[in-house]
Design a protein around this nucleic acid. Structure first.
Lengths: 259, 259
DNA sequence: TTGGATGGTTCATTATTTGAACCGTTGGTG
DNA sequence: CACCAACGGTTCAAATAATGAACCATCCAA
């Protein structure tokens, strides 16, 4: 494994639950020698990707990350596009909604919001990369991707995240078929216990998915009527977000039924 | 120079003016062999820091940047803190305002806004790392930093950016003295021709600057009255932004005069 | 006072990176 | 239509950087 990859993976250990990490904890997480990890941390810090607390000596994500996001948003304002439509979807559905971008063969969350109208809330950690096969977002992306991409994705190991994660490829391909018919994918506790979700793809300029938007519903609030409402709202959101992002929907993408 | 640094520096070549970069242009910018640069780009892409356009083959900043920003903001929401105060300052002053965070011995811009009330506007590129000695933001940070930090900063070469950039250290130390007295630093075309600016420090929890906010004014609009108004507004903004960011002002920080 | 946990450093050894040389594709020009 | 320039991409022997075992310093709890 390349040295660059080893260093960048250190950045991926941060999360809402783990905003600051010390050297020894990094060593545990990375499984590498302390001297090696230390040198990577110093070099990331020298380049602004980390900053070290002067007293506690723990590290956190640094200003270069923020600066590069500002650069990216200045020219491809995808977060600015996602925010209003995801916030409106959250308002309509009353549930946590999140948007993510395709990163190789995983999804990288870029924005989420929870309207906080209920006593219980889905926990969402924006640092958590999402698998394709075990999430509604991921399956929605696969459903509208090229065959080669799907073959590659299914060619890799498919870990189980809950005891309801589907790993049978024939079954998953049938789910993709169904998603193509309806435009969105519905899953039940395949990634998180006690959470169901409905996800739909966001299309890029070539009519191929570049990301996804999903609505997460605690199973205690799942009813058939509610999930149908969520699905309708999501179909409209997908359309709007894709167009706002400069994308085009495939010609056979299902229309949202009127009403 | 470490391999990690070489790779991360590639990310720094992106800007509003240069949102997408091809392999050959990277080679020119980095001054390294094509095979080396290509391997670094591939490894950055594999980790989500870059994505490659499938047709044009150019690279742009990738989703991992956005995800890590979401993680950082979830726990240290500095951009969320800066945005309202910088937008209000821009509304009050009618000029481009920007906030940046200290990154080693440079400033890394994280948010800027232009109220666009005038026909002419200052160009601002959020990818551009700002030097300390040649900007009002930088000098404001230095004025309230520890002596050792200032000595280190002045111990490095001090490049000139315009023919009005001050590089005489005694002169610059006098500017720092004046800034400590007034709380903010005023400069005239030291970094950009035709642009003057007033900058002030943002303080962290230890009462030491962690960044800065500045107002940039095209020299055609500079009057003594306007710059005094800008200075007053900025003093209030610095105080508010520091407190909102969980910082404390040094006990001898000058009060904004009443009125 | 001692021991454990943490952050940090050194340098011989090992692994990775490097870049000169090469290949393929595309588009413009004569 | 052929050629050339510009660009993206690959290979592998040689060179360089990275690695990690062993060590040191500090702090805090028992």
């Amino acid at each position: 494994m390349g040295t660059i990859t080893k260093a960048l993976e250190l950045l991926g250990y941060f999360s809402r639950r783990r905003p600051e990490i010390g050297l020894t904890e990094f060593v545990r997480l990375a499984g590498r020698d302390k001297a090696t990890v230390h040198r990577h941390l110093v070099e990331l810090e020298e380049n602004g990707f980390l900053e070290q607390h002067p007293v506690a000596r723990t590290y956190r994500l640094g200003p270069a990350i923020l600066r590069l996001t500002a650069v990216r948003e200045a020219t491809h304002p995808i977060r600015a596009v996602f925010r209003p439509v995801v916030e409106e979807l959250a308002r309509q559905t009353g549930e946590l909604c999140h948007a993510s971008l395709l990163q190789g063969k995983v999804l990288s969350p870029v924005f989420h919001t929870d309207p906080q109208v209920h006593g219980t809330q889905v926990h969402f950690d924006e640092g958590e990369i999402l698998p394709l096969h075990a999430t509604s977002s991921g399956l929605a992306v696969l459903a509208f991707s090229l065959s080669r991409f799907v073959d590659d994705a299914f060619g890799a190991p498919l870990p189980a995240f809950t005891d309801k994660t589907h790993t049978d490829r024939a079954y998953l391909r049938a789910v993709l078929e169904d998603t193509r018919r309806t435009g969105v994918c519905r899953v039940d506790q395949t990634y998180d216990s006690e959470v169901s979700s409905v996800g739909g793809p966001i299309f890029g300029p070539e009519g191929i998915p570049i990301g996804a938007i999903a609505v997460a519903v605690p199973t205690v609030r799942v009813t058939e009527d509610k999930m149908n409402d969520v699905q309708q709202a999501l179909l409209a959101t997908i359309r709007q977000a894709s167009i706002s992002a400069g994308g085009v929907l495939p010609r056979d993408f299902p229309d949202a039924p009127k009403g």
